[in-house]
Design a protein around this nucleic acid. Structure first.
Length: 498
RNA sequence: GGCCCCAUCGUCUAGUCAGGCCUAGGACAUCAGGUUUUCAUCCUGGUAACAGGGGUUCAAAUCCCCUUGGGGUCACCA
């Protein structure tokens, strides 16, 4: 596309504060943010908090917090202010009133005296006949003097947009040329009976006054575009460019677009699960956009450098959570143990397994756990499940671990032998290997013959850490205790079966 | 139902605008091997897609039409 037109673009993210940041909204915010950052533009946050949603408790904060976590900082918005505020629709009443007056003066809207009830009755009747209801245009041609008289009499009325015959078309930045007959746009209501403007009107007014140059939003707004284009026409304003991002679809067996009731619909869920936030950005960007079809791991900086609206796909995307798991794991593995330690410590401290003070200054053992975890965890939420065995005195045994322990009657003796061979000062690295090999040699078996039962005895499972780490994380005393307990478990199973 | 949009492996996608380099590439997931005398990581390989039908063309995943399928939207909600 013509990139020069993107330079200095003013883009916006305009969620309605429903109490959470939707995953699709987060992606929309990211794409807009990326455009602003790449082209030296401005990223605006505007809260669509008119009408009934305006008072949802903590709803604004949920949006702020979500964006903050993702690192999508607005340049202008309710919190940061800006030259075209206020940035909450609930506070922009005067601006709307002016625009409505303007619309009236230009003759772009006309009063309609149908009551809500009459409209509802018409709709019901049409539906009963199996037809699609449409506004009949009854008040469109009402003489202005007659209309004025009824208004002066105090008769409640709405104001409808006068849409002329013809067609409305525009070039969508993502979808390409799009067009609709004006008959299908209809004379929509712009001003309610109580004098308040409806959504489509305020969006136009706000985007215009906030000097928004490019509207990049979810495809669920695509049909609104035609209406809004007609409103721009009525106001005599130049519309911005529009681009519609295909929606994120729910995973089967659910159908349709992602909504709150589907798992994974809110950003908060991912934050709580402890996914790496940079991985999250990476994953979000790859949902509906691609650099070249090859690149899977791409940093935020490279995203800013390369993001291109013309490479946004046209097809809806299902959430691909296993891929997020993978990407997040990739990012975690690239971090140094020092970087990773605080989040591991936090997860352990939350369980009460280690003191909270370790979040700032992790102990040697926590560092060891972190190093072992680095190759295994994909998100913070994995830490606790992967470490339960360390901090559980009365270890539950997985079925397979139990089998491994029991299947060879010699295991009891081997574990005892290993326990006896362990010095109080546990050897590390090569020295540990030497010790294991020596014990194995003395028993006349291979390394594996003692490693597997040892892991089972130590962890109660088959997939713990590297063996040497298992020992060190537990310490000599506990290790010996568990080896002996394992031996006992083995013996009792033997006597029970014989 | 009307209108709008979309259609490549199970999933995310490259390729489509400028038809031939595509016996369709990558990644996740999955399966099978290998490395690690343990776990994880890692490496190698396999299974797997152009929705269907008509055109146009020397040539179509790519262009056109129809069908089918999916999604969105049709409030004095946002």
């Amino acid at each position: 596309m013509d990139e020069s037109r993107l330079r200095g673009a003013r883009v916006r993210f305009a969620p309605s504060p429903t109490g959470y940041l939707h995953i699709g909204g987060a992606r929309t915010a990211l794409f807009n943010w990326l455009v602003a950052r790449r082209y030296g533009g401005t990223f605006i946050l505007r809260l669509e908090d008119t009408d009934r949603v305006r008072d949802v408790k903590g709803a604004r904060e949920a949006i702020y917090e979500g964006l903050r976590w993702l690192g999508l900082d607005p340049d202008e918005g309710p919190e940061q202010g800006g030259p075209y505020g206020p940035y909450c629709q609930s506070e922009r009443g005067e601006i709307y009133a002016h625009a409505i007056a303007e619309l009236r003066e230009r003759g772009a809207i006309y009063p309609c005296f149908y009551t809500r009830e009459e409209l509802a009755a018409q709709r019901a009747a049409a539906e009963a006949r199996g037809e699609v209801w449409r506004y009949d245009g009854k008040y469109r041609e009402l003489a202005p003097s007659l209309a004025k008289a009824r208004i002066d009499r105090g008769e409640e009325h709405t104001w409808r947009l006068k849409v002329n015959a013809g067609a409305t078309r525009y070039h969508d930045l993502v979808l390409g040329d799009s067009e609709v007959k004006n008959d299908d746009v209809e004379d929509i209501i712009l001003v309610r009976g109580n004098g308040e403007p409806v959504y489509n009107l305020v969006v136009v007014i706000d985007d215009h006054h906030m000097r928004v140059s490019h509207v990049l939003r979810g495809a669920d707004h695509q049909t609104n575009t035609f209406k809004q284009l007609q409103i721009y026409l009525g106001l005599g304003w130049t519309p911005p460019e529009f681009g519609h991002i295909p929606l994120i679809l729910a995973e089967p067996p659910n159908k349709g677009k992602m909504s709150k009731r589907h798992g994974g619909a809110t950003v908060e869920e991912y934050q709580k699960a402890g996914y790496d936030v940079e991985a999250m950005i990476n994953w979000l960007a790859l949902m509906g956009w691609s650099l070249d079809g090859e690149t899977e791991v791409i940093s935020r900086a490279d995203l800013v450098k390369n993001f291109d609206i013309s490479r946004i796909g046209k097809t809806g995307a299902q959430l691909n959570r296993p891929k997020l798991e993978w990407i997040s794991g990739e990012y975690l593995r690239r971090q140094s143990p020092q970087q990773l330690a605080p989040r591991v410590a936090r997860a352990l401290a939350e369980r009460g397994w280690i003191p909270a003070a370790e979040i700032d200054s992790p102990s040697a053992r926590t560092m060891r756990i972190t190093t072992a975890l680095r190759e295994r965890m994909r998100k913070d939420g994995d830490v606790a499940p992967l470490c339960t065995w360390i901090f559980t005195a009365d270890l539950p045994f997985e079925e397979k671990a139990q089998q491994t322990l029991v299947k060879d009657p010699e295991n009891a003796a081997r574990l005892e032998r290993l326990a006896a061979a362990l010095p109080d000062a546990l050897p590390d690295g090569e020295a540990f290997s030497e010790l294991m090999k020596r014990v194995a040699a003395e028993l006349g078996v291979g390394f594996g013959k003692i490693a597997s039962p040892a892991r089972a005895a130590l962890t109660g499972g088959l997939s713990g850490f590297e063996l040497v780490d298992c020992f060190h994380v537990l310490g000599a005393t506990e290790s010996v205790r568990r080896l002996r307990a394992g031996a006992a478990r083995c013996r009792s199973a033997q006597s029970a079966s014989s």
